[in-house]
Design a protein around this nucleic acid. Structure first.
Length: 112
DNA sequence: GGATTGACCGGAA
DNA sequence: GTTCCGGCCAATC
C-alpha cells in the first residue's frame, strides 16, 4: 500500500483542488488568489497563480483576481469585459476597471 | 541537492 | 495615487 494511490494521471493534486474551487464561483462574484490558498488550507497566493497560468484554461479564470481587486496581468482587458457581461460589481460604476471586493467577494463553497 | 521563477500579498516610503 | 521591499508556497532548471 503506497501513500499515494495516484502516482500519475493527474498533473498534481494541488492544481485539481484549485480548479475545483474556482469552478464553483458563481457569476457576478470573484475570489482572490490568497483567499483560494486559505480555503485549500495550504499553498500560497503565488502557488495558486502559478496553477491558474497553466491549468486555468478550464475554469472561469476571470473570477480569480488579486487582493486589490485588480485582474491578473496581461488579461486585464479580457477580465474587465467578462465582468461587464456578468454584471460584476465594479468600483466607480460599470466603467470601473476594478472589482468591488466588498460586494463581489466569494466567501467559499456553501456561501454563494 | 540548491537556485530561480511565477496570472501574489501586505506594508512602508 | 505610485514604487520598493520581504515573505510566502509549489513547480521547474
Amino acid at each position: 500500500m503506497v501513500t499515494r494511490d495516484r502516482d500519475f494521471g493527474l498533473p498534481d493534486e494541488f492544481a485539481d483542488d484549485v480548479l475545483d474551487l474556482v469552478d464553483q464561483v458563481p457569476e457576478g462574484m470573484v475570489v482572490t488568489y490568497g483567499d483560494l490558498a486559505e480555503m485549500l488550507g495550504r499553498g500560497g497566493p503565488r502557488s495558486v497563480g502559478r496553477v491558474m497560468s497553466h491549468y486555468g484554461s478550464d475554469v472561469p479564470w476571470w473570477r480569480v483576481i488579486r487582493a486589490g481587486g485588480y485582474p491578473p496581468q496581461g488579461l486585464e482587458d479580457e477580465a474587465v469585459a467578462r465582468w461587464r457581461e456578468e454584471a460584476t460589481p465594479l468600483v466607480g460604476g460599470a466603467l470601473g476597471r476594478r472589482v468591488d471586493l466588498k460586494l463581489a467577494r466569494w466567501q467559499g463553497p456553501g456561501t454563494p
